[in-house]
Design a protein around this nucleic acid. Structure first.
Length: 434
DNA sequence: TCTGGGGTCCTAGGACCC
DNA sequence: TCTGGGGTCCTAGGACCC
């Protein structure tokens, strides 16, 4: 048996914890550069605002409907997420943190009434963090995910499903006719693993509901869409195919990419941006205790704008795997110089670290010009740099090539509506007035 | 006239997730 | 004027091996 615990409208809920005046109002949280809506309160959803809606297309709702838009405050959301996850972990013996606002809980061996237990955990998360969440329970991960969807829909649109499924929903508790009713009134596109393409293809075949889908013959699913969808199909029928990944799996690639606050045409700001992105990526790499074998750099113009198009990337292999910021940056900057062409308004660029391997597997090498002691000193330098930056804040120590202004007047991010980092920066901790 | 069988590795592209 | 960022897995096809 599995559970999925999922924060409701997570980013918006995080903001509301510290600004209760936002309760009951339509609120959206915007992506980087205040580009588009990436989280919406129920009231914002009710206004018809779609996930990913560009801000300039919905900003008239600010005046017309009292919509509040906030810049993304990922520092806050990450910290709130940690708190929520550690409480959700109390639901069962294993936990897989699946995304910033969701975790799967393995319930094997848990005794007593699961639904009651889930309600308690939900209440505790709400009381201790202020985040409302939905909990879905099912005999497979896919069914738990579906149960979670039912729990949230039942809460938001009463009357969609039979009573008693709002907020906490255990599909395994239903009689077969009740389950059939739920699956028949849920669109197949809501299923975890069925995206836009497959959902359109299924609908074209007359397969609209989850119930329709699980009634398809296995060979048809396998033949037309492959093993991935077959797994989903089996899971929906109660056959567990996907386990809870209790241990976090190391990443196979690490990326840091950004859209620019304004178009970038010159090489200098581009170099600065890439240097900064590489530093960020290298920090993640060291946190994972891995080395990278290759660095990929890309830059491109906006796909939404007219004018000359540009999109290029290059993979720069390293002479030996490294997690050293300056080694990785040197490679990345060489890559940028190789692909850069003047005359384009670049909208976005990024760095990806590829060919990752544990730093314990580093192969020794004869290197007359680069003695092993030098390597060790560099590693110590990186440890020291990470410790200083952890303690005193990002970019306390940085590479000169990243620049000291964060590209404020060139490539830097636009974020005019960001709330304070209430829980992680002393100077921004909220003050309580009597 | 006739042209094997079985592998591996890599890459690009497409689908999905939040 | 203005459209996010970070990942995963699978498949097909080509190069190459014996």
């Amino acid at each position: 048996m599995y559970a999925l615990v999922d924060g409701n409208n997570f980013y918006v809920s995080c903001e509301r914890v510290f600004r209760p005046s936002l309760n009951g109002r339509p609120v959206v949280v915007l992506s980087n550069n205040d580009g588009c809506a990436i989280a919406r309160s129920n009231e914002a959803k009710a206004l018809g605002i779609k996930m990913g809606a560009p801000w300039f297309q919905i900003r008239h709702l600010e005046e017309q409907a009292g919509l509040v838009a906030l810049s993304a405050n990922f520092t806050l959301y990450g910290d709130m997420s940690d708190r929520m996850m550690s409480l959700a972990a109390g639901l069962g013996p294993t936990q897989e943190v699946y995304s910033i606002d969701e975790s799967f809980i393995g319930l094997h061996g848990v005794r007593g009434d699961l639904v009651e237990r889930a309600w308690k955990i939900r209440a505790r998360i709400h009381q201790w963090t202020g985040i409302p969440c939905g909990i879905g329970i099912g005999s497979t991960k896919t069914l738990a995910k579906l149960a979670n969807h039912v729990a949230k829909t039942a809460e938001r649109k009463p009357g969609t499903y039979a009573d008693g499924m709002a907020s906490v929903c255990d599909l395994s508790k239903l009689r077969s006719d009740q389950l059939r009713a739920v699956l028949s009134s849920t669109e197949v596109g809501e299923v975890w693993g069925v995206g836009r393409q497959i959902s359109a293809q299924l609908t074209a075949l007359g397969v609209k509901s989850v119930q329709d889908f699980i009634e398809l013959p296995c060979e048809v699913v396998r033949g037309k869409w492959g093993v991935v969808l077959e797994r989903t199909w089996r899971e929906l029928r109660g056959e567990a195919c996907i386990e809870v990944a209790d241990m976090p799996v190391p990443k196979q690639q690490i990326a840091c990419t950004r859209s620019f606050g304004r178009p970038v045409a010159d090489l200098a700001p581009l170099l600065e941006a890439i240097s900064e992105f590489t530093s960020r990526a290298a920090e993640k790499l060291r946190k994972q205790r891995h080395l990278a074998g290759q660095v990929l750099v890309f830059a491109r113009t906006s796909p939404f704008r007219d004018g000359p198009r540009f999109s290029k990337s290059v993979v720069v292999p390293l002479r030996r795997p490294s997690a050293d910021t300056s080694t990785l940056t040197t490679a990345a900057l060489a890559g940028v110089r190789a692909i850069y062409q003047p005359g384009f308004n670049l909208a976005k660029a990024g760095v990806m670290l590829l060919d990752l391997m544990p730093d314990t597997q580093m192969q020794g090498e004869l290197a007359w010009d680069d003695p092993v002691t030098g390597q060790r000193d560099r590693a110590k330098l990186m440890v020291a740099m990470d410790q200083v930056n952890d303690r005193f804040g990002k970019r306390t120590v940085l590479l000169g090539s990243s620049g000291i202004t964060l590209g404020a007047d060139t490539w830097g991010m636009k974020q005019v509506r960001r709330t304070p980092r209430y829980t992680t920066v002393w100077g921004e901790v909220p003050t309580v007035r009597a």
